[in-house]
């Protein structure tokens, strides 16, 4: 229906944020493509993970665990722990997007860190901008992530280390850029700092994924009581 009409009315700020997030995050698909091949996954398996799982951290987790000799179950469990946050994002976005039918299937598939981050980042510009941010970023990341996964997998031998390209820093920088505008008061800054500390404290002691998901408990604790 009016998808094209809607897209043509996207404001500049939302479109710019969506496109830059889509491209920079999508670019990291090169690293995933290379990581998949290096871990022993075939070209088709690597590309299917990007097409079907479509959640970067989960994908890196499953190829990492299986590539280092872990069982399928361990790989799936680790990846799924990292994917729980997408359910939380869906919960947050559902009242805004109100999706039904095939749009719900498509919307669910592109409910990830980036589409959620951009959508919430547009709250000053109104609900329509938030929806546009969600779809543009979700579909944009999907497009670039899959293209670059294929390129990365094809060029795995030639690529060398993604660190040589600074890609290992670009992804957390992108996440930082997404969380930064959300920190509107000292309470939220304290939560961000607490999450940072907790996740790092847990990292040496628990399985990958737990340090990240456990900070959801911090959000529950911080949100339990109304702020005075």
């Amino acid at each position: 229906m009016g998808q094209n009409v809607r897209v043509s009315r996207v404001n500049r700020t939302t479109a710019a944020a969506s496109l830059s997030v889509s491209f920079t995050v999508g670019l990291y698909g090169v690293a995933f493509g290379a990581a998949g091949i290096a871990a022993g996954f075939s070209l088709i398996q690597t590309c299917l993970l990007s097409l079907l799982t479509f959640s970067g951290a989960s994908q890196f987790a499953v190829v990492g665990v299986l590539g280092s000799g872990g069982t399928a179950l361990a790989g799936i469990a680790t990846a799924s722990l990292l994917g729980i946050r997408n359910a939380l994002y869906g919960l947050r976005l559902a009242p805004l997007l109100r999706l039904r039918g095939w749009r719900k299937v498509a919307g669910a598939q592109v409910t990830i860190d980036e589409s959620t981050g951009v959508a919430l980042g547009q709250s000053d510009l109104g609900e329509e901008a938030m929806k546009q941010g969600f779809w543009l970023t979700g579909l944009g990341v999907y497009f670039f992530w899959n293209i670059f996964t294929l390129l990365g997998a094809l060029g795995a031998q030639a690529m060398g280390d993604p660190a040589a390209w600074g890609l290992d820093a670009a992804v957390p920088a992108a996440f930082l850029g997404l969380v930064w505008p959300r920190l509107t008061n000292n309470y939220e800054k304290l939560l961000a700092a607490s999450a940072l500390v907790l996740s790092l404290l847990l990292t040496p002691f628990v399985a990958a994924g737990i340090p990240i998901i456990s900070t959801a408990l911090l959000a529950v604790a911080f949100g339990w009581k109304a702020r005075s």
Binding site: P172, V179, R182, A193, A195, V197, S199, A216
Partner: peptide, 21 residues
């Protein structure tokens, strides 16, 4: 309230873990 705070916590943790681990 909690749903608003969850992305802040998880994204901050992602920044930390992907930078320092």
């Amino acid at each position: 309230r909690i749903n608003t705070l969850i992305p802040i916590a998880l994204l901050s943790a992602l920044v930390a873990v992907q930078t320092f681990s």
